[in-house]
């Protein structure tokens, strides 16, 4: 990898770095309580919560750092943080 005057990188290749390994707590979603408001998808700093086919949130655990922000902000208390079992 040659370093010239500037450095450049392929757009968005930070995805090579799987930050999910940082996690000690895992958010678990309860679709029964979820009202599909989209708050968790909007506020995730890791951009790792997306909408599934039925409009419920789904987490990409390869990147989720387990910060718990979604759990804290969920207006329906539909997300629970559970300790990761190795």
């Amino acid at each position: 990898m040659a370093l010239n005057v500037g450095c450049s990188a392929r757009p968005g290749n930070a995805r090579d770095n799987k930050t999910g390994s940082w996690r000690t707590f895992r958010p678990v979603f309860d679709n029964e309580k979820c009202n599909k408001c989209g708050t968790c998808m909007m506020i995730c700093p890791e951009v790792c919560i997306s909408e599934d086919e039925e409009g419920y949130p789904q987490v990409d655990y390869e990147f989720c750092k387990g910060c718990g922000l979604c759990t804290e902000e969920c207006p329906k208390d539909a997300i629970e943080m559970k300790k990761e079992e190795k």
């Binding site: 930070a14 995805r15 090579d16 599909k36 909007m42 700093p45 790792c48 910060c67 922000l69």
Partner: peptide, 18 residues
């Protein structure tokens, strides 16, 4: 409802959780 606009800031960055 999820915001449909595409993302231009990708997962995998090294910021602290939260």
């Amino acid at each position: 409802m999820a915001d449909e606009r595409p993302e231009f800031f990708e997962s995998g960055h090294r910021a602290c959780g939260g």
